[in-house]
Write a protein that binds this DNA or RNA. Sequence first.
DNA 1: GTACGTATTTGGAACGATCCAAATGGAGCC
DNA 2: GGCTCCATTTGGATCGTTCCAAATACGTAC
Lengths: 349, 349
Amino acid sequence: MESNTPLGRKVTVRDIAAACGVSRATVSLVLRDSPLVNKDTRARVEEELRRQGYVYNRAAANLRRRTSSSIALVINELANPFFAEFAAGVDDVVGEAGMVTLLGSSSESPQREQAVLGSLIEHGPGGIILSPAEGSDARQVLAAVGARTPLLVFNRELSGEQPEYAHWDSLALDNQQGAREATAHLIAQGHRRIAFFGGHGDSSSCRQRRAGYREAMKAVGFPMAPHWEVECLPTRLDAARCAEALFEADPAPTAAVCYNDAVALGLMHGLAERGLAPGQDFALTGFDDIAEAALATPSLTTLAAAPRARGRQAAQMLLQRLRDPDAEARRIVAPVKLVIRASSCPPLA
Amino acid sequence: MESNTPLGRKVTVRDIAAACGVSRATVSLVLRDSPLVNKDTRARVEEELRRQGYVYNRAAANLRRRTSSSIALVINELANPFFAEFAAGVDDVVGEAGMVTLLGSSSESPQREQAVLGSLIEHGPGGIILSPAEGSDARQVLAAVGARTPLLVFNRELSGEQPEYAHWDSLALDNQQGAREATAHLIAQGHRRIAFFGGHGDSSSCRQRRAGYREAMKAVGFPMAPHWEVECLPTRLDAARCAEALFEADPAPTAAVCYNDAVALGLMHGLAERGLAPGQDFALTGFDDIAEAALATPSLTTLAAAPRARGRQAAQMLLQRLRDPDAEARRIVAPVKLVIRASSCPPLA
DNA sequence: GTACGTATTTGGAACGATCCAAATGGAGCC
DNA sequence: GGCTCCATTTGGATCGTTCCAAATACGTAC
């Protein structure tokens, strides 16, 4: 604890070895808990390590051993609570494995993403977890990451041509299954005229969710009206503004599967302004299970993706890959869980 | 781009040098954009670097140069949007400076914090930004960080005895001024009976905010009733549960300064359950300006701390310290800004 | 006393980049 | 030719750790 060198040079194995009258190799063995070293020697060295306030230089060790003790994590938008939770989950597992997380944020810009990947890769991470920016191109990402570093892609697909030789692991959410379940749930509640509300048509998650909705409707043979599929920005404000579109033509829907929770909450607002009581006169579901969903009035039926658990899972997948670099690439689609609350009421009698 | 060594050894300066018929030193000069090297040589080397898909090994360079290219960031709770924003701000600036962020999360546990600091320090960061876990002890943190690595403490104070020899920079929020302003605003609206609601009494931020509240009340000579200071967990749920406590005795308050936004939103819920309309029958303010504050009904008057800007500022302070290690320690208290919205209505006539 | 086995320790050469002092090769001048 | 001057290049040592093959010490059995 007491620092004999308050501002002197950094303490190295050499200093410890000299002070104990042993060789550097012996100190190194002590540091790595080798059973080879004598009990007394070990005690003497350990005491000296403490006394001089030695800190291990992992970078030097990694250089020599050609190993890595870090994982790079590149997030499209860290400020988004969903991804913050995800990052926390990743860091949990990475930390448990005795490694550290190198963080990078791309702010949804493929250019920034390239720069960040380039910078992180120079630090020699053992692997990379990437939640791609929208529009991030597969070839470019692979060029930046290189063939040497395992890659795990989370949440979105990389766009553009997929080079066949390159294989990476991926972890995605089962958007389609989720939307299908939500739709089926509304159908089970007795609804027949169900809308799909909100989201941006081009994004892969929106396409997948809409596909799930259509699938569920087709499965029971219910017709769908064109004006039941409403696009809007994935924000509360725009969702509230677009609520009207549902009622522009007959027949009006009695329920809606919403793109996500933000949109659902916005729609609630829009409904209230039209004099409809959400959860009573009109049923709806969300997606994500954000903190607010449980607290809204009425509380929101939604699909929980458990971002922290996904983060842990992503990290585990990558660590697994480090252990077994030649295993087949894995593409895991994590199920999402329907959380039934008050907003998905039966239709009015 | 084309990788001649799809799974061969890592490409090093040595390989490039050999392929170009120059020495390692020359390649190294090219890598660092030295003006010493001949134009043609440079072109030849750069071409070869590209051809072989060379990636710079920054760890090796740092070892030799005794420099660092990373900043460690240890957050008490990364999943909290406030700190996620902060982290994003830090990473922005660190990235702009060509460095990378080493991430660690302590989950509000001083033990975890110790472990995380110990692990990160081994990677030789140039400096550390720490948002301490509640109850984190100054001596222990300093022991883990060592005297060699500059430390910047954000948001909270380290508890326990403060060793005089150790100096670190700090960046805090002006909790007291914020709460004082919020209280003064409610007073200006015409309220006389104002409560301070929520938060945990022991935490430094809660103490500071309460002090600001009391100060503002004393400044105008308004009396304060004991049951107007209600403690609760800083969560929505517990806040909703504790709302009653405000009305257990006479006289009941007509407004409340809340510990933070989560608590304020919870209190709104609790009020609604008692049949009181927040923003009409009862005024309240929050602290933090989380995304939801603007969207709640009624929209929430609160104190904006601009966490992303604080993150940028913290990183800048630390980078400044790296440039000038011997400068006086700086303790900056960042002002917070009162954002007036609908929840801080005047009292009923 | 020699040989052998076990337990422990060790010097030197890596890892991949950079620093440094010194070498190289012209061009220009006397 | 010999000289200096300049631009450019270079081998070897070094950063802090680990690997490796070999050395040392000490019983114990023959």
